[in-house]
């Protein structure tokens, strides 16, 4: 659970907990895939496999950020969700434009098509959830919104 002082910034309760669960699943999926790929055949598709590893790290950090729920946790989660969205859109576009660079799949190639497009939806849900939970936390941030 979160520290007592962050009890009202509820990124880690309700729907947030579901989001954390899905992030955990993707962290497991991406990191085990990257571990196998890098350990067994890094030379075949180094870019794709290193991107898998990067995606894995981002998912883990995002899950931790959402679960920690404090001011720092929110910023970390925000950065990770943004990076993820950029990653899935960028790698998705790149994997279509330059398939020769991606001889093997990553979590993000084809806009996450190998994973039911969940990698594309997840950062959007994450950003929406961070936005939704923004007000109770605003007392700590620069944006004070009294009476919200």
């Amino acid at each position: 659970m979160a520290e007592p002082g962050t009890a009202r910034s509820r990124t880690n309760a309700g729907p947030g907990r579901l989001l954390i669960a899905v992030y955990l699943l993707f962290a497991i999926a991406a990191s085990s895939r990257a571990a196998v790929q890098i350990a067994t055949r890094l030379d075949e598709a180094p870019l794709a496999y290193l991107l898998s590893a990067l995606a894995a790290v981002v998912y883990i950090v995002a899950a931790v950020g959402l679960a920690r729920a404090g001011h720092t946790g929110r910023r970390v989660a925000l950065a990770c969700c943004a990076l993820e969205l950029a990653g899935v859109v960028g790698v998705g576009a790149f994997s279509l434009a330059r398939p020769d660079l991606f001889p093997d799949e990553t979590v993000w190639s084809g806009f996450g098509s190998g994973y039911g497009y969940i990698p594309l939806v997840l950062p959007v849900l994450g950003l929406a959830w961070l936005r939704h939970t923004r007000h109770p936390d605003a007392r700590k941030g620069p944006l004070l919104t009294p009476g919200a």
Binding site: M1, A13, G14, P15, R17, L18, I20, A21, V22, L24, L25
Partner: peptide, 22 residues
């Protein structure tokens, strides 16, 4: 076990949603 632990932590409808997702 992951689903069970998270569902215990979240005794709301979202706990059921976690079980569904897993």
């Amino acid at each position: 076990p992951l689903a069970a632990v998270l569902a215990r932590m979240e005794p709301t409808r979202w706990g059921s949603a976690i079980v569904c997702a897993v």
